[in-house]
Design a protein around this nucleic acid. Structure first.
Lengths: 236, 236
DNA sequence: CACTGTGAAGAAATTCACAGCT
DNA sequence: AGCTGTGAATTTCTTCACAGTG
């Protein structure tokens, strides 16, 4: 993570013996992809140095990271932008859309439902559910809010692959259990609790207050600021 | 994960705070603090093992992390909850409030302004600014929305220490520059761009689509899930 | 006995530095 | 000459394992 350093665990099941991509690298791939989008439209090739500046990281790190995807740079020239974009999108599984379900249509859920960035980057929000009977039946961003009790059937019907939990902390684990039972294997959790899920299910968390607390630490310890010089890299 | 840091070694500060706390540890302190809050009210002491389960990490890591704060556990017993809470809050600078300014009152800014978790954890949102003349003057959550042009005076008047950027990506760097010029040293950035800031200013970022892309990677590579077994740790 | 605190081992991530290709 | 790709060195983080203590 942001910092949060991300996941742990999973020493087993290599299964892709070829080239396992280190977790730290995986966390940065979306950053590189985003950085490519900042290049002028007519840019044909990009050097590791230039990409590094855009991504706010070290050039050697860019080269090492990209080398895990295969060797497709040209020495003396750089990386062909289109090819690089394609390879990264392929690795990240972005050649297809991943339909998203948002659980909890409070203020945050609302904001997330409206966020264009999800669709733009391949994650269409296809369904909303909430436990509040007062919200069920209302329409948000063109989507009807369904009762969370119907979560299972909705996941199946809409082909949901990814669940976003934007509920109060108290019910987040319960919701996670329901998502897992419905077959969802990717969860983005905004509730400030640690979720427990079975092996094979991925969880990433975003805890807003936690981010501020980390900033407060550095604010207080004024001699060793995080991210000095450039924006931080937050582990990607 | 994580934040880059430039060399410090800044002399002049009285008494080196004993041990420098590693960045990975700093990133977990808020997690532990949150975990303590999940204990029953009458809990007097907690073991590293119990805290580890709550935080979703390894017990050795908990002990090592806490040891950087000083040695105040009791062998054979555990850590006194109140003391632990105090020490962590002290290290994180949470014995005081850190007034927050939100820049950009779109859907996300709105949701953030309403989020109770900030105030509860010591980060009162004291001001809102936006560049849209149509929004300036409106009242959100009891706070008037001011023109971003007045950012400097507002930061000074309200004692803002921390800025949250919830603007479109295109203006985020400009906003960051204004925040820095106004004296803000801690920035939480929701815009999907890498911010460049001078040394001494900390930036943390939250990129929602990026999180989904990371999940998509593991979804696609079904054999090496992130955070299998338990929720992932930030971290990062 | 139960649990902390920590050296030491191990693993992962980062960075260096340069050989090798275009 | 310019830039990639990568072994090797370095640093950081994690985990082990156990001595030490209430």
């Amino acid at each position: 993570m942001v910092a949060e350093r991300s996941s742990d665990d999973s020493p087993g099941l290599p299964a892709r013996p070829a080239r396992r991509i280190p977790e730290a690298t995986v966390n940065r791939l979306p950053l590189y992809l985003r950085s490519l989008a900042e290049l002028p439209d007519d840019t044909a090739t990009v050097s590791s140095e230039r990409l590094a500046v855009l991504a706010g990281v070290n050039a050697a790190k860019v080269r090492k990271d990209l080398s895990y995807l295969g060797s497709f740079g040209t020495r003396g020239v750089g990386y062909e932008v289109e090819h690089l974009r394609y390879q990264m999108a392929r690795q990240l599984g972005l050649t297809q859309d991943w339909p998203v379900l948002i659980v909890g249509v409070g203020d945050l859920g609302h904001a997330l439902a409206k966020y264009d960035g999800f669709l733009e980057r391949g994650f269409p929000v296809v369904a909303l559910v909430d436990a509040d009977a007062g919200k069920v039946g209302s329409v948000v961003e063109g989507l009807e809010v369904h009762d969370v009790a119907r979560l299972g059937e909705i996941v199946a019907a809409a082909g949901v692959t990814t669940g976003i939990i934007a509920t109060p902390a108290a019910v987040a684990q319960e919701v996670a259990d329901q998502l897992v039972a419905a077959g969802v294997r990717s969860i983005l959790n905004f509730a400030p609790v640690v979720l427990s899920v079975p092996p094979g299910v991925s969880v990433r968390k975003v805890d807003l207050a936690m981010e501020l607390q980390i900033l407060a630490f550095y604010e207080q310890h004024r001699s060793a600021p995080a991210g000095a010089g450039l924006g931080i890299g937050e582990e990607g």
